[in-house]
């Protein structure tokens, strides 16, 4: 187990190197001088030069890269030209709403989708299956921001059951109100992922139901229900578990767009606003943070995999 973890950690080094190089280069992809871009057309030459100097843009590119990595490792991934706070604090402020939204959407996506997928597989070919398959097909074609806009139109503007947008700090309002603000965004965000999980669960359960060990269980006298819920489900869960990590990441990244639809002050909105302000270092920091979470998530899922599937020997 220990050896496996060390091996996995070592394998992360090239990945993180590539991630860092890509994120570092973002700022250098601007057409022309980044400092001039940041300050806009009307800035005078002296101010641009001062910013170049303070951003270290006058150093050779490899030196800039090493300096930047050094700063990141010391927990200082850049400086916002707009918000006068250390970057880590900015990220912390904006991460809360994003995280809440992601977790809520994740709950919706799994708690609803997995049972529906099992149901569809168990009743394959029936109306219920076709209905579920159709909904999931629609879900896969419905990007979160589209669904978000349609939900606002239907449930906030017309029916007025939910607020049009915004975010309430946890604890500042009643839990119900807190949830009311997050429900439409979480639905919009989670629907596509839920659709994917439904399809995956259905396929996975169907595959397992056709396996020899399910036939063997049937020959033992196991009931249809236990066949699906005990024998098939735990096996079918293995491929589903591996995508849950990806699902979480897709939701976290997708939150960027949904936050803009619902005016939620999360890191996604921070990114979009920073684009307008040409606040490149904030964008870099956000992309870096999310990528790091992703990398850690993948590792965690790999390790978890070994717990669910006894066949996986982590020593190998």
């Amino acid at each position: 187990m220990k050896k496996y973890i060390v091996k996995r950690l070592l394998a992360l080094i090239p990945t993180l190197f590539v991630v860092s190089v890509v994120i570092f280069s973002i700022i250098h992809m601007t057409p022309g001088d980044p400092a001039a871009m940041i300050l806009g057309d009307k800035a005078d030459a002296a101010a641009v030069e001062a910013l170049r100097e303070s951003m270290g843009l006058n150093d050779p590119i490899p030196v800039q890269y090493i300096n930047w990595v050094g700063r990141v490792l010391r927990g200082n991934p850049g400086r916002s030209v707009f918000i006068d706070k250390p970057m880590t604090e900015i990220l912390k402020d904006y991460m809360g709403p994003t995280f809440a939204l992601t977790v809520y959407a994740m709950l919706l996506a799994t708690v609803l989708a997995i049972p529906l997928g099992v149901l569809a597989a168990k009743n394959r070919g029936t109306m219920a299956d076709q209905g579920i398959s159709f909904v999931s097909m629609v879900g896969i074609s419905m990007p979160s921001f589209l669904l978000g806009l349609l939900l606002i139109l239907g449930f906030a503007v017309k029916l007025q059951w939910f607020p049009v947008g915004g975010y309430k700090e946890f604890g500042s309002v009643s839990f119900l109100t807190y949830i009311r603000y997050l429900t439409l965004p979480a639905l919009a965000l989670g629907f596509m992922e839920a659709a994917l999980i439904i399809r995956l669960t259905r396929a996975s359960v169907l595959e397992v139901l056709a396996s020899d060990y399910v036939k063997m269980a049937k020959a033992k006298g196991v009931s249809e229900f236990a066949l699906v819920m005990k024998h098939a489900f735990k096996n079918a869960l293995i491929p589903i578990l591996t995508v849950l990590g990806q699902t979480f990441m897709a939701l976290l990244a997708g939150a960027a767009v949904v936050e803009s639809v619902f005016n939620i002050p999360g890191i996604g909105r921070l990114t979009v606003n920073s684009v307008a302000r040409r606040d490149y270092e904030v964008i870099q920091a956000v992309v870096l943070l999310v990528s790091l979470i992703n990398v850690v998530m993948c590792l965690a899922v790999d390790l978890l995999y070994g717990l669910v599937d006894p066949r996986v020997r982590l020593e190998d």
Binding site: S211, D212, Y213, V214, K215, M216, A217, A219, K220, H231, K234, N235, I238, V308, D309, P310, R311
Partner: peptide, 16 residues
């Protein structure tokens, strides 16, 4: 009536 299948590896449930 009981049954023994050909391939024990695929006929036994791997996760139990």
């Amino acid at each position: 009536i009981s049954m023994i299948f050909q391939d024990a590896l695929s006929s036994l449930n791997p996760v139990f």
